[in-house]
């Protein structure tokens, strides 16, 4: 790990000012990803700005929904009674990720800002356009079993690793941030970005902006939802494919559909056309398969990850079936029903 200066921010304004004035400074909260990246020399900040003493650690009622402060630990969100009652999809997705120890340390804002687990990104001995812009992407013609099948570019095929963010995408959360030019609210779908020709940019945040909260809107997907995560081992592994499904039902008819995929793209993947195709239709395998086909029509396999297309197709159909039936996937009983 490189040596760095340390600043303990006493206010949001101090943190923004310290960050904006120093391109090589980084914000630290839980540290579960940043400290790891620093141990691999992937991140070499000249200054860490510790924001853990800022008053951003509360879950509050907000416009009929909930406002989750950027510093609320992942485990606190997952077990909060208001979250489990009103946004069980979010609780379930959080518990599908990482380990109890990591969830206790990792913050809400940090979960959004964690970096890809692409092995080339993590290995400073190889090129990587995300780590060193313009150096190349060895994953495209290399070992790419865990990589993206949707929204890739000629510069990067990395995936976003978060489970929580897949649920937040399906729930249409809003990310509230503050920067040198003041506060702004970013719709979740616009927070993360596709790699394009700037894969070094994971999000649409400007340097100097920090996350204050994630706001959940007043919508009820507490009955018909699931977070279905498929991975190489039953626990404590990143998703190969995951599905967050949230439905509003009129009997057997789907009134509203939200569907987000994890493990397949540089950001949680949504497809408005597929969601509209479900609405007004009777829930059932044919309807679900048609939606999956719409989503995966544009999927592009690489040498080792072609299996993800069929895996995603089946996960979408199973996830929608679980959501429609009101039988969400358990995150402790690993049998998939």
């Amino acid at each position: 790990m490189n040596r760095f200066a340390y600043t303990r921010a006493g206010s949001v304004a101090e943190a923004v000012q310290a960050l904006a004035g120093d391109p090589a400074a980084r914000i630290i909260a839980g540290g579960t990803n940043l400290v790891d990246l620093m141990k691999y020399n992937v991140e070499r900040p000249d200054r860490l700005i510790d924001i853990t003493r800022l008053p951003l650690a509360a879950i509050e009622e907000h416009e009929g929904g909930l406002r989750i402060g950027a510093l609320v630990p992942n485990s606190t969100v997952a077990y909060d009674a208001r979250v489990t009652a009103r946004y069980p999809l979010l609780a379930s997705a959080i518990l599908a990720g990482a380990s109890p120890q990591l969830r206790n340390a990792a913050s809400t804002g940090g979960n959004l800002l964690q970096r890809t687990r692409c092995y080339y990104f993590y290995d400073e001995g190889t090129p990587c356009n995300k780590r060193v812009p313009g150096s190349g992407c060895p994953a495209i013609a290399g070992v790419n079993r865990i990589h993206a099948i949707l929204g890739t570019s000629d510069h990067c095929i990395a995936t976003h690793p978060s489970d929580m963010c897949v649920a937040l995408a399906a729930l249409d959360a809003t990310v509230r941030v503050e920067g040198p030019n003041g506060p702004r609210a970013i719709p979740f779908a616009e927070f993360h970005r596709l790699p394009g020709d700037e894969p070094q940019r994971d999000t649409t945040l400007a340097h100097g902006e920090i996350v204050l909260s994630v706001d959940l809107p007043d919508r009820d997907f507490s009955r018909h939802y699931t977070y279905l995560k498929l991975r190489d081992r039953l626990s404590y592994a990143f998703a190969l494919v995951s599905v967050a499904a949230a439905l509003e039902m009129d009997g057997e008819t789907i009134r509203t559909a939200r569907l987000a995929l994890g493990g397949v793209a540089h950001k949680p993947w949504r497809n408005a056309q597929a969601e509209r195709s479900l609405e007004g239709r009777t829930a059932g395998p044919e309807t679900f398969r048609a939606a999956a086909d719409l989503i995966l029509a544009e999927a592009k396999p690489y040498a080792h990850n072609g299996f993800k297309i069929e895996l995603a197709r089946r996960a979408i159909v199973r996830g929608l079936a679980q959501a429609a039936a009101g039988t969400p996937q358990s995150q402790t009983d690993k049998r998939i029903r």
């Binding site: 630290i28 579960t32 400290v35 141990k39 860490l48 120890q101 990591l102 340390a105």
Partner: peptide
């Protein structure tokens, strides 16, 4: 690197990986 849990300690009542805490 926070992957094995051998460094687990309890900080303010919560179990965490001591290797990833500054």
């Amino acid at each position: 690197h926070g992957q094995c849990g051998a460094c687990t300690v309890i900080v303010d009542g919560r179990r965490v990986n001591a290797c990833l805490a500054l």
